[in-house]
């Protein structure tokens, strides 16, 4: 399965936008676990996932070709 990853802010510093080929990952929760293992700094940051440009509030199923955006909070002014 192929997932497009788009990252922002501090997260983009260690996880560039990329197409990931992942096998055995069926849900956003599994994707989170996978990304936090591949990119350990992610586990130390609060972030929100958006699936195909919609923020998700609970675990949802993924399908090939989905785009997952990973957004950290910004506080600066």
């Amino acid at each position: 399965m192929e997932i497009e990853i788009i990252s922002f802010g501090k997260i983009a510093e260690f996880m560039a936008n990329q197409r990931l080929t992942v096998d055995g990952i069926k849900t956003t929760a599994q994707l989170k676990d996978f990304l936090e293992q591949e990119f350990p700094p992610l586990a130390g940051i609060k972030y929100k996932l958006a699936l195909n440009k919609t923020i998700i509030q609970e675990t949802v199923e993924l399908k090939s070709g989905d785009t997952v955006a990973i957004m950290p909070p910004f506080s600066g002014g």
């Binding site: 802010g9 130390g44 940051i45 609060k46 929100k48 923020i55 957004m71 909070p73 910004f74 506080s75």
Partner: peptide, 14 residues
């Protein structure tokens, strides 16, 4: 609804 819990100090730079 975006970020339920405030980040810890130092988690996100200012």
């Amino acid at each position: 609804d975006l970020f339920p819990i405030p980040p810890k100090k130092g988690e996100i730079p200012n």
